[in-house]
């Protein structure tokens, strides 16, 4: 069992996974942010690899990526920061980013480095299923890196079942047809979609991302799925005056209540 599967075997409800952009607000905050998120009860972390042209992201994550790149963040800097992360952190860690920086780093070298550091999975939104299975799946599998795939309200059932076969981690359910960002409440249409996917009895657990920003939206998705992924709300919290620890602690309570 990989670390992500272990998490879901211990805990099936109220999973909170948090996304933040590496190198934001300061270049060397990465490790402290990860440690503090774990300390304050977050179950899993998605470490964002900043990219110059993040197509699927709204303003908040675009802004954090621009700042992180200006701070000097890159994939090699990130890997050197994370070199000893498994000495202090035990929850599952996932890297999330766009395909181009990974291609330039080299897909095999990327997977090999992830494995040696103890990264459990990768989310690359612009690496579609077909390209993944054709070109890269065997490399990911060789190094035991889970590729986590997204589904949206528009994804057809047959394709969801195909995606379910490709991973042993979880399915990233995008809450609505939108770029990343925050919402104050989900509507009936979105609730219906959560119910519909949940009743498909997929082999992988479901986490809902995009738009979760407060106790209300967190509770709404937890009612139908295993939990939530929160990104933009965390980035906003990290920008507040106050120490990283104060901001992270306030942020986690603002989601879990």
């Amino acid at each position: 069992m990989n670390r992500i599967q272990q998490l879901f075997s211990k805990k099936q409800k109220q999973i909170l996974s948090v996304y933040f952009t590496a190198g934001f607000p300061q270049l060397h905050d990465t490790v402290s942010i990860i440690e503090l998120l774990e300390k304050h009860g977050v179950d899993m972390i998605e470490i964002g690899i900043p990219f110059s042209d993040p197509l699927a992201d709204g303003n908040v994550i675009q802004h954090s990526s621009t700042v992180a790149l200006a701070n000097g963040m890159s994939l090699s800097v990130l890997f050197s920061q994370l070199e000893h992360i498994r000495k202090t952190v035990s929850i599952p860690l996932i890297l999330m980013g766009y395909i181009n920086p990974v291609l330039q780093f080299g897909v095999e070298k990327f997977c090999e480095t992830c494995q040696s550091i103890g990264i459990d999975g990768v989310i690359l939104p612009d690496l579609p299923l077909h390209e993944y299975t054709k070109e890269y799946k065997h490399i990911f599998e060789q190094y035991g890196i889970q590729n986590i795939l997204l589904i949206s309200p528009q994804t057809e059932e047959s394709r969801i079942r195909m995606i379910d076969q490709q991973t042993q981690a979880f399915i990233y359910m995008v809450s609505s047809s939108s770029t990343t960002g925050t919402k104050s409440k989900f509507n009936d249409e979105q609730i219906h979609y959560f119910k519909r996917i949940s009743s498909m009895n997929l082999q992988n657990p479901l986490l809902v991302g995009f738009g979760i920003s407060n106790t209300e939206t967190f509770a709404q998705v937890c009612e139908y799925t295993h939990g939530a992924i929160v990104g933009s709300a965390c980035i906003k919290a990290l920008e507040q005056p106050g120490t990283l620890e104060q901001n992270i602690s306030t942020f986690v309570s603002s989601i879990k209540g």
Binding site: L55, A56, D126, L127, P128, E131, L150, S152, T155, V174
Partner: peptide, 19 residues
């Protein structure tokens, strides 16, 4: 048939745009 000219092309799009 996969949308490539030699090694160039393809459709590297987020799942949200797949449909």
């Amino acid at each position: 048939e996969h949308g490539y000219y030699g090694k160039f092309g393809g459709a590297y799009i987020p799942e949200l745009l797949y449909p």
